[in-house]
Each structure stands twice: as C-alpha cells, then as structure tokens.
Nucleic acid binder design. Structure first.
Lengths: 246, 246
DNA sequence: CGCCATTTTGAGTAACTTCAAACTATGTGG
DNA sequence: CCACATAGTTTGAAGTTACTCAAAATGGCG
C-alpha cells in the first residue's frame, strides 16, 4: 500500500519492520479515489488530513483571480501532498488530479503519532519535507531564470528522476501524464510555446513523446540542456537522522 | 534577543514564559555577524546549525553554472533561514547578507530539544515552516504568471506586510535594503526593466522609493496592482496546535 | 574631491504571447 | 463498428513584453 512512500523514504533512512508496518497501517486507514481532472482539495478549504499519493499523478496549483494559473508541484506515487497542513485554517492552493488518483487520507493525529513513535520515521518525514522545499526552490529558479527550452528539459529530467527513485521509470522512459496545457501552467509558458519547445527537443533527438509516453534518448544531453543536476533532490544518504514534527 | 521571532510566532501560538525563555536562550547561545554582501552559507557547504535572523536582511539564492541567479526568498529579522536543514549533507542554495546581519547560530540538537520540550514551540515552528513554504509557492506563481509590474507590486506588498508582522514597518513605509539588481534577481527580470517598472509604480503614485526607503502611498491600490492577498501568509490564528519536528 | 556602485536613459532586438484555424487523437452513443 | 463530439496538438502570422548593449547621470562614501 505504502510501497512507493517506503521506497522513497529508504533513500534517506533505514526503516525498521515496525516503521514499515506503521506506514502501511496509516496508508490503508482510509482510501479515496479521485477521477482525472477532479480536485483533491481546493484553495480556501480547511485541510483535514494528510493526503498520501498511492497511485496516479496530481499537481499543486495556485490561481489568480483572472484565471491565470501556476502549477507549483507535481505529485507522483509515494508523495505526501500536504504534511502538517492540517494545522492551517485554510489551504492557500489547490491539489488537482492529473490522472485517476488513489490516495490515503491519514488523520492528522495519526500522522503525528507515527512521527512521535518512531524517531526514524520522524526524521524521514522531515527529510521528505526538506526535499519538497528544495524542489519548490528549484522550480522558482526554473521559471525565473531558464529559457523555455531549458525549462522544459529540466522539468522532464526532474520528473523522470523522481519516478526512477520510486521505481516507476523503466530504462529510458516513463509516463508523462500531463497535457501540454498543464506543462505550460507548470513552466509559466503558453501552450503554443510548449508545443514548439517540445518539437525542438524532439528535433534535437533528446526525447520522443507520443501520447502519454515519454522516452528519453540521451539523458546526459537532456540534463545538460536543462542545466539539471540532481543534487537538490538529496537522494543520497549521509545526513543527521533526528527530527521533530509539530 | 529573539524578540522578532517571538513576535512572529505569536501570530500563530500562545507562548508561555518558559517557551519564550527557551527561545531567548537558543537565540543567544552563539551570535554571528555577517557584513553586507557576504555569504552566510554557500551552496555545497554542509549545514551545521540553524541560522536565526536577529538583525538585518538576507536572501536565499540559487545559481546556474553560467552565473544566472535567482533569489528565492528574502529574510527579515525573526526569520529562521534553514530549520532542519542540518539534516542534509549539503546545501542546495546559498544564503547571502543584503545588509549587515546579526544572526544566532543554534546547534541542531538544541533546536530539536526546544521543539521536543514544548509542544507549543514545536507547533509554532511547524507553522513557521508552513508559512515559508507558502511564500515559496507564491513566489513561483509570481515569477511564472504575473507581469513585471504586478510582480514588483506583489513583492513590495509581501515585504511590507512581513515587516509589519514583526513590527518593523511604521505607518506606510519600511526599509527596502536591496538594490535594483537584487530585485531583478528575485523577480526574474533584468535590472533595466526593474528600473522602468519602479518608475511606473512611482508615476502611478503608488510608492516613493529613494535610497533604501520605501513609502507606500496607497496600499490597497498597490495590493490590487500586484494581485496581492495576504491569506497565504497565514497570519491569523485558528489552526490546530500540535506538531512534530524531526 | 574623486571613485565606484547604482540608477537612469535610449535604441534596437529576441523570446515568447496572442489569436485563429486546421489537424489528430480519444472516447461515446447509436 | 462507425459517426460524431470533444479534448488536445500543431501550424502560421502578427504583436508585445521584456532583454541586451551601451552610455550617461546620480549618489554614497572614504
């Protein structure tokens, strides 16, 4: 149930069998299915529990009154969409399903108890939160400084590497569930320009993208094109393992 | 010593005298002064402790190999630059002083103990981290979707409101410590365009900016110009007060 | 007073947007 | 299983925002 989450956390921490059981239990307490294009939770809503991605793809987005929308994060299986956010009065963003999504709704107290009962889980969850913040910073850098071409290459690299980290990318390819319009919202570009940028990546023999299937022909070259370096994902172990969660 | 931090945390939590003493103690354990334009810590360094801003202004930034730089956050007195980051092997960004800065270096274990010993502090720190994440998301929205004019207006509103929250903005103005080049790096614009955008805001009688002094003549109008709504700063109490920190 | 950093101005340009339409998949009901 | 509707992708052409380069003006500071 929580296999992807466990796989991800193991990049940082050594989980005991008890830890894994606790995670499994939390991940199976309450399951929710959300159809593609439906919202998991909307800006303004009171967050009530922690949403853990079990299957499918989702995104976090913020909108301006006039409809302009920025996707600020993609969620893949194993991601925790809103750890600790149940502390807040209201959501400052929405979470929307990009494909059919299966998620675990973990009650806030259960989530906290899990961390309180195992220092290793607490540390792993804190690490997870730190990585998410690092990704958010990288996205700001992406949108603020990289050109359209670089931005797209970077996004594809990141998505691929993250899927790889939970075992969802086989060889040189992965599923790319979002439409070009959604890519545009994530990159701060127009759909038209996203389309042309993808064509450029194809013309340079870096990728193939047909339907929802992405094939990366030359990962090193794509990384270079996107000025991508995976260090900010902090996938290598080596840190201090102790933490507190509120 | 930790007056600004305490003032900020009190927006969310009701701190006991013991809580305040604990914060004061941590904030006075080790003090460091950093001159304007010097780095507090650099990308690639191993983070060793928690940096708490006591006085002055700083920023978090990320750079690309070719020198392009994105400022992803501004720090003002009371801000914690890198809570929990001591867990990571290396920094994925730099922290630089925008003005002369005085900060408290809090050892990781001391920081964790503070949270472990007081559930209220733990909750307040978690809330603080959530707000920082919300600000990071808003910045991505800013850079990705708003026009130069809107972006600048939004940045000025945010900076002013945050200073207000710790008592550093009197009436309709505040100090604006960064140069136009730094504003440009924060907004993903060129210096030239930042200059022209500021002139436009002045021409519309929204602000006066001379030297390092910003005066906001019409805050509601500036907010409207920047599509700014302070909800994402989560300054109003009303949440659940319990947390875990790794 | 003079130096260096910063701000300001001007002119030409590039990157990306907008609008509009055509084309291609994908899925639905008959 | 086909016909149709709809969502998504692709193309072309024109427009706009913001960038680059370069130089002049201003200001802070020793």
């Amino acid at each position: 149930m929580a296999a992807y989450l466990i796989r991800k956390l193991e990049h940082f921490a050594v989980l005991s069998d008890d830890d894994k059981r606790a995670l499994q239990l939390a991940a199976s307490y309450r399951i929710r299915h959300v159809a593609a294009r439906e919202d998991v939770i909307r800006e303004g809503d009171k967050p009530r529990h922690v949403n853990l991605m079990l299957e499918g793809y989702a995104c976090r987005s913020k909108s301006l009154e006039d409809g302009r929308r920025q996707i600020v994060a993609f969620f893949i299986p194993g991601d925790i969409c809103d750890a600790c956010m149940f502390m807040l009065k209201q959501m400052d963003h929405s979470i929307g399903a990009l494909s059919a999504v299966k998620l675990a709704e973990i009650p806030g107290e259960m989530f906290l108890d899990m961390a309180r009962n195992s220092p290793v889980i607490a540390a792993a969850l804190a690490w997870n939160a730190l990585v998410e913040e690092a990704i958010a910073r990288e996205w700001t850098l992406n949108v603020g400084q990289r050109s359209a071409y670089e931005r797209m290459a970077h996004l594809l690299c990141e998505f691929f590497v993250r899927l790889q980290a939970v075992g969802l990318a086989s060889g040189g390819g992965c599923e790319l569930p979002m439409t070009q319009a959604e890519l545009a919202d994530a990159l701060g570009l127009s759909t038209v320009h996203v389309n042309r940028t993808l064509q450029e990546l194809r013309a340079n023999h870096l990728i193939t993208l047909r339907g929802k299937t992405l094939v990366i022909h030359d990962l090193p070259a794509l990384q270079e094109a996107g000025l991508f370096s995976p260090t900010y994902l902090h996938l290598e172990r080596g840190g201090h393992q102790s933490a507190v969660v509120v």
